[in-house]
Simulated scan of single mutants.
Amino acid sequence: MSFWVLSGVALQLVLLPENLSAQQSEAIPEAPATSMMDHLELDQWGRFWELMAHERLLAVIAAPKNTLSPFTSDGCSGGFSSSWEQIAGYWPGFADRYQQEPPFESCCITHDRAYHDTTGAADAAYSYGARLRADRELRHCVWQTAQDQRAELARLYSVSEEVLELGFGQLGWAMFYAVRFGGQPCSGLSWRWGYGYPDC
């Protein structure tokens, strides 16, 4: 399934991480007040099922026969980076204007490193929290790219700095929801949490 399909589906979901402390909480899209309890119940069920997957992953990691594979990364998963590179290779004008790879490619590689080696988790809840942190850091990194390179990228893309920041902010959220939706352990996907180990 492509990144764009995952993003489109995931953006329609309301995923509310449970029990966020004041330090952890960030701007999470709010659901209408009338349905907040329904969303919380759905989130509890989603967390419950994901915690079971984290338990299975921890068992795979603990098995003596299973070792961590060498690190690999496809950049931004779901065909995002590869599609960007193919278009850049086919249309030189695209490459001239938008570069050979997404400007936030390094964000995706850092995220892949977190997803690849998930050893060190004391329990399933810790592993769950570590994945949530990695996903938030990916979103923030994409947004930070716009902050750090806003004048250069706005000029390159021929948009205002405000439009650039808005676009990268929305893209960061789309990527966050996509990895939350499809990145849980034991999913069989090549970019799942713990992909450095055999699938559960």
Rank of each mutant, 00 (worst) to 15 (best):
A31P: 00
C108H: 02
F71W: 08
F48G: 01
F80I: 01
Q99E: 09
A53Q: 13
A62Q: 13
G93R: 04
I61C: 02
W91G: 03
A59R: 15
S83K: 04
Y98P: 00
D112C: 12
D117N: 15
T67W: 05
R47F: 06
L68F: 12
C107Q: 04
Y90N: 07
A53K: 14
R47W: 08
A95D: 06
T72M: 08
S35H: 06
Q100H: 12
Q100G: 10
A130W: 10
A62D: 14
A62Y: 03
Y115S: 02
W84T: 01
R131V: 00
F94D: 00
S106L: 13
D38M: 09
V60G: 00
F48P: 00
D96Q: 13
G93H: 03
D123T: 05
D123R: 07
R131D: 02
F48W: 09
T118P: 02
H116I: 05
R131H: 11
I87W: 07
G79M: 04
T118I: 09
S82L: 09
Y90C: 11
A122W: 06
C76S: 00
G78E: 00
L51S: 02
E55G: 03
E105G: 04
L51H: 02
S77E: 13
F94I: 03
Y115C: 05
A124Y: 09
G78M: 01
P70I: 05
G120A: 05
E101A: 14
A121L: 09
